[in-house]
């Protein structure tokens, strides 16, 4: 076992599910916390399109209800990310990752642009099927080692199958679209700056976390 996270700073016990914070995960948690605070406090951007070659420009209006809905989704996404950062249980982590995925869809789903919705739909399909590698990976690890707890697995003595780890990583990639931001670039055309950036940040954070998990167990 490789200890890349450092010593436990704080352990929160929920029955069988532990939440633990090492210097590594605590840093990620703080980033998510700060950004969620920013999302709560800030006002959304107002996009202005300029017609090329002329003086005309038009501002995209965001209605109040849409703004509130997207802020709600961004906050939910931030909370889910914070949960995923600390979770010390594989299955609990996969559930938090799914929550990040669906909140990401929600952030852009309220936009009324056909192009954005197309991209969000494709992304949503991927986020949905990504639950197979996520749950499959957690189930494979549970079946072959008899435990889901990351600290217990990290203590050694278990032969965690490689395919289980690969499934976990693949699932997080699917939920967050972490390495390929192709669809996300399309989704960023949606107006409302702090909220869409939450999509990116949350997927980056859960990807960093799954790397830690895969190396640790």
């Amino acid at each position: 076992m490789l200890d890349i996270g450092g010593d436990n700073l704080f352990v929160l016990e929920f029955g069988d599910i532990l939440h633990y914070y090492t210097p590594y995960t605590a840093t990620l948690f703080l980033v998510a916390l700060i950004f969620t605070g920013l999302v709560i406090a800030s006002r959304p951007e107002k996009q202005v399109d300029i017609a090329f070659g002329g003086d005309a420009y038009y501002a995209k209006e965001t209605t109040l209800s849409e703004m509130r809905f997207r802020r709600f989704m961004a906050i939910a996404c931030g909370l889910a990310t914070m949960g995923a950062m600390g979770s010390g249980d594989l299955f609990n982590f996969t559930l938090f990752a799914s929550l990040v995925g669906i909140a990401n869809i929600g952030i852009v789903a309220a936009v009324k642009s056909r192009h954005v919705l197309d991209a969000a739909y494709e992304y949503g399909i991927v986020a949905m099927v990504a639950t197979l590698p996520l749950f499959g990976g957690a189930a494979l690890i549970l079946a072959t080692t008899g435990t889901l707890s990351i600290p217990a697995l990290a203590a050694g003595g278990f032969a965690v199958p490689l395919v289980g780890k690969a499934f976990l990583a693949l699932g997080v990639i699917g939920e967050g679209m972490a390495p390929f931001y192709a669809a996300k670039a399309e989704m960023f055309r949606a107006p409302g700056a702090p909220y869409v950036i939450m999509c990116s940040l949350s997927s980056l954070l859960i990807f960093l976390r799954v790397v830690e998990i895969v190396i640790t167990i």
């Binding site: 069988d16 599910i17 889910a80 249980d89 609990n92 938090f96």
Partner: peptide, 11 residues
Amino acid sequence: RGADTVVETSI
């Protein structure tokens, strides 16, 4: 495993 169910209902 109550935390699982809390996350699940939140989803």
